[in-house]
């Protein structure tokens, strides 16, 4: 295993993603006025995930070799990076910046929410239509479009749950429904990819062996069929686990946040218990 990791061909140190990373760091520092807090760790995680997705062997193998690696890359871009970015944003600054521009969330919650949900699920489904999946793997520009759309869709998807502004977040029961149905959505696609006999992304069925590692991969058991099954399971179980974690955090918020808020008011109004007549 170490020998794979040592293999310089498996690392893409010259990836242009570094520019994106630098740009992001600059934006972030501007956003929080160069004042780093505990929150900023999330940002570091987001950057790491971005680098793993493009620089590490995941990125190299995703580029035409392994469907499963390509799936890991999608998941990092769609779920991990946007989530960490949202969690890292300084709340007050975002509030100040977006006050006038992005007020949609509070006015048409239902329609907007459905759009966000569709963005998250839809991109995943869309890019796995065989022809599109193939094209994006073979064309560089389309690949960039795809990666960007994943990042954007991810931001949209997580926005109703972890938006830096509390007011824009979904109510906890709605959030649980939102995440649970999303889990159902990726389960369906995952099951389909895992169990179907068709090659979802034919480019991975017979890769062109750019850096001469194909035999090694096949020997390690990653034949196209096994690879696709693994990809399907990856698109199914890790996202759902992540959604379940998010659900747990939403539930915790539900039980605690309001309690803190209500302490002051309740102690002020607290009187001895009494019987209330119920209107009938």
């Amino acid at each position: 295993m170490t020998s794979y990791l040592d293999d310089p061909a498996l690392w893409n140190w010259m990836s242009p993603i570094w520019f994106v990373v630098l740009a992001l760091i600059a934006t972030y520092l501007w956003m929080c006025r160069a004042r780093l807090t505990a929150r900023s760790w999330w940002f570091a995680v987001a950057l790491m995930a971005l680098l793993v997705a493009f620089v590490s062997p995941i990125g190299v193998l995703a580029n035409g070799y392994l469907f499963s690696a390509h799936m890991v890359q999608h998941l990092l871009l769609l779920l991990v990076v946007p989530l960490c970015v949202l969690l890292s944003l300084p709340q007050e600054r975002v509030a100040a910046l977006t006050n006038h521009r992005f007020n949609f969330g509070s006015r048409r919650p239902m329609g907007m929410t459905i759009l966000c949900w569709l963005a998250g699920l839809g991109t995943m489904w869309l890019w796995h239509v065989p022809s599109l999946c193939n094209a994006a793997t073979q064309s560089e520009t389309l690949g960039i479009v795809r990666s960007t759309s994943f990042l954007m869709a991810g931001l949209a998807f997580w926005w109703p749950i972890f938006s830096p502004k509390n007011r824009l977040r979904l109510s906890p029961p709605a959030a649980v429904t939102y995440l649970f149905s999303a889990c159902l959505g990726c389960t369906l696609l995952g099951i389909y990819i895992t169990f179907t006999t068709i090659s979802v992304c034919p480019a991975f069925a017979n890769p062109s062996d750019r850096i001469g590692i194909l035999t090694m991969l096949y020997r390690a058991g990653l034949t196209p069929v096994a690879d696709q099954q693994l990809g399907g399971l990856l698109m199914w179980v890790p996202p759902c686990s992540l959604y379940v974690c998010a659900i747990i955090s939403v539930l915790c918020r539900w039980y605690t946040a309001d309690e803190l808020a209500s302490i002051s008011t309740a102690t002020a109004t607290g009187s001895s218990p009494q019987m209330t007549k119920v209107t009938s």
């Binding site: 607290g270 218990p273 019987m275 209330t276």
Partner: peptide, 28 residues
Amino acid sequence: VIPEVKSRRPLWDLDHPEHADWRLAKTT
């Protein structure tokens, strides 16, 4: 009549007003 509900144990609160749950810990 339905006793006032101010915590998870409304009848406890009724019987033990001094140690009522809502005095000790707040619930939503």
